[in-house]
Computed example of a mutant assay.
Amino acid sequence: MLVKLFNAVYLDFLKNGYFSENSGEVPGKLGADIEAQMFIDLKKPDLGPIEEKCNNYSEDDLFDVIEFLYDYVSKPIERRFLEYEYDYQTFDREIGKQEFRDSMNKLLCDYREGYELSEKGEILEFPEQGLEDLVLEKLPPYDPKNVEQRVESAILKFRRSRSSLDGKYDAVRDLAAVLEFLRPQIKALISSDESDLFQIANKFGIRHHNDEQKQDYDKAIWYNWMFYYYLATIHACLKLIKKAENQSP
């Protein structure tokens, strides 16, 4: 159903000239140059013509094509008559991308647990219901290189639609590394209790690898729980650190 809906929306954008600026073709045809670029960028044969091949797409193929098209869409603004057909000569790239994104998100939000095409052109999983604010909340400014940028990268890695269990594992591991970086400050604030923050990562094969660690657990479920647990903990620790800094003479 998602593929059928995508194809209908794609053909509407195609017919109305939203891919004419980059293809050099009249509306209604994607253009051989864009199809060739799609093969170069995605390294996948037999994806085009999209309207003919999309029924055989895997989920990964479909998401790749949506992200690719987002980079090439532009809204036609002015028309001209050329050899018995209408062509476009003026385009607005930003409006075209926004309209394409809005249309795709109406389809993606109802697929499985819900996805969205971001402003940067990446299809991302929706955050867990009820935890959206935690994912979107900005961290208190502290150390951009070692904290904020690493946390932002971990969130993106975790939410990417093709994020395998290995990708989710890496995201949890990255958050555990941020906590390790903050550990000296945390220890000074909460004494010996800081070691409890690392027990989950230590015992469930996240930070180290040894025979004493637990491996026989449902990783799809527990990686999600660990990710949000560590993200919330980082937020709490940074707020404690900033509060202590503000109270110091």
Rank of each mutant, 00 (worst) to 15 (best):
L2G: 11
L5M: 12
N7T: 13
D12P: 03
F13T: 04
L14S: 00
N16W: 00
F19D: 05
F19W: 01
E21R: 11
E25D: 12
K29M: 07
L30V: 10
G31P: 00
A32S: 10
D33M: 04
D33L: 08
D33W: 06
I34V: 12
Q37S: 10
D41I: 07
D41Q: 12
D41H: 10
K43H: 08
K44W: 02
G48E: 11
E51H: 14
N55M: 14
L62N: 08
I66K: 05
Y70S: 03
Y72G: 07
K75A: 12
E78Q: 12
L82P: 00
E85S: 14
Y88A: 02
D92M: 09
G96S: 07
K97E: 07
Q98L: 11
M104P: 10
K106T: 09
Y111H: 13
E113D: 15
G121A: 08
E122W: 14
G130R: 06
E132C: 03
E132W: 09
K138S: 13
P141T: 14
Y142W: 15
N146L: 10
V147L: 07
E148W: 03
Q149Y: 11
V151E: 11
V151D: 03
V151M: 03
A154I: 02
A154T: 12
S163G: 15
S164W: 09
D170G: 01
D170P: 03
A171Q: 03
R173T: 01
D174C: 06
D174A: 05
D174S: 14
A176I: 01
A177T: 15
L179V: 01
E180H: 06
L182Q: 01
R183F: 04
P184W: 12
Q185F: 10
Q185H: 09
Q185N: 06
I186P: 01
A188K: 03
S191E: 13
S192E: 13
E194A: 05
S195Q: 11
A201N: 06
A201L: 04
N202W: 02
N202L: 07
K203V: 04
F204G: 03
F204D: 00
G205Q: 08
G205L: 07
R207V: 03
N210V: 00
N210Q: 05
K214Y: 09
Y217I: 01
D218Q: 09
K219V: 00
K219D: 09
W222M: 10
F227M: 04
Y228P: 00
Y230K: 04
L231N: 07
I234W: 01
I234T: 13
I234E: 08
L238R: 05
L240H: 14
K242C: 12
K243H: 12
K243M: 09
A244S: 14
E245W: 04
Q247E: 14
Q247W: 01
P249K: 12
P249D: 15
